[in-house]
Design a binder for these strands. Sequence first.
RNA 1: GGCGGCGUGGCCAAGUGGUAAGGCAGAGGUCUGCAAAACCUUUAUUCACCGGUUCGACUCCGGUCGCCGCCUCCA
Length: 463
Amino acid sequence: MRIYNTLTRSVEELEPIEPGHVRLYTCGPTVYDYAHIGNFRAYVWEDLLRRTLKLLGFRVTQVMNITDIEDKIIKKMNDEGLTLDQATRPYIDAFFEDIETLRIERAEHYPRATDHIEEMLEITAALEKRGLTYESQGSLYFKIDAFEGYGRLSNLDNREVKSGARVDSDEYDKDDARDFVLWKGHREGEVSWPSPYGEGRPGWHLECSAMSMKYLGESFDLHTGGVDNIFPHHENEIAQSEGATGKPFVRYWMHAAHLMVDGEKMAKSKGNFYTLRDLLEKGHAPRAIRLLLLGTYYRGPLNFTFEGLAKATSEVQRLDDMVVRLEREPAGADGNDEDFDSRVAARVDEFKQALANDLNISSALGAVFGTVREVHQALDKGELPSGSRETLAGAMDVFHSVLDLAADTDAGLDAEIEALIEQRNEARKARNFAESDRIRDELTARGILLEDTPQGTVWKRKL
RNA sequence: GGCGGCGUGGCCAAGUGGUAAGGCAGAGGUCUGCAAAACCUUUAUUCACCGGUUCGACUCCGGUCGCCGCCUCCA
């Protein structure tokens, strides 16, 4: 498995600390609102990463944090008079519903920041002991000058950061504008926890250090997030973690580029802001949304358009149609078409190789659609013997172990719709095509598409 | 200004020293009562631009232009 490591700015072979076992930390949601499709681009990509690692034989232990204490949450509590739990629970629940909708595989751990205040304070204590902090007006800060190597991830050494040039937007007192807050002193009307520095709450970066190290160890393999997290979030995590333990924190960092909408940054003010729920309400299929978010190389921007979503819908439909065709054209012969089998085997290999090369999903999808074509060609020429169908089923299992785009098994048609199809076939037999077309149109309007094949009329649900 | 990423057909998008995958959309054909699906044919002498290295570059090097992101709490 080769991956692009932000830390070294090059593609490297992934070599976990414990051979064969990847410990993965993925930055998760801040639960003050519904996650938007840009967030899901990152989560779907992380799902691709996780599933690819497993396909390639790695065991994966993944942690995704839930940030349930943060400025925007506090604002929501105060604006709407809610408790912390009332403010965050609906969005935590929505998040889990949404990842299920998108078929994002569950991580092993979803720790919440507010459940790990103790672990965070252990880190600040360690940092204090090493002289990397200072207190000011009830808040604790990380002293960047005292930590050697700050800025490695984001190339900050080469930046022109002018100390003190920027007014501190948080209105907390810092010695140096670049220093960041570990623990925020209590302010009127804010939730707080006791600490050696007085009542207060954790700074944003601290939770990820505390929770990643608790579940994955002081040194672990892989940490991911959106590119916007490189600085300051991940840079500060490194400083806090390594400052506290004296050990290397994370070996590989991966970052996904942003999603854009119609070529522009998605923003509520531009009216191009979508949550997953918005798209579902417009009638778009979850699998199509998943494929759209999955289908672009993660290091490049993903331009979300409804045209692109329509394309993804067609592609999912093409995958479904192949399955339907195989069902209605049963194998008439035993044995194998060895030529077919070897071509499919080559596609599976191509699929794995592509993903192993820094998650080259476009190339991997090329292998999948190439397989679909092989199948149709084989069926057109004659039949596909049962042994080769098993070969194909195995290949599709490999593809879907990562893509997870197979149709749910359908419970079957309502009796009423079944009756309509029967009526239509009666009309067709009587060559009453006006009537048969009317019934077909009616079913189309209800989302049922019909196809008349040599094996009879088959139907499918419109995606 | 600094840092990072990206620029390939109508659109999305692989490839990467040896002559451009795949998908979507379009056109024509086969099949069909008509459709749909599927298959076949067809759409880049060309990979932002300009130089250089090379027998040969989209691919390496240098430069230019353009787009996007980050530069203190946005995935």
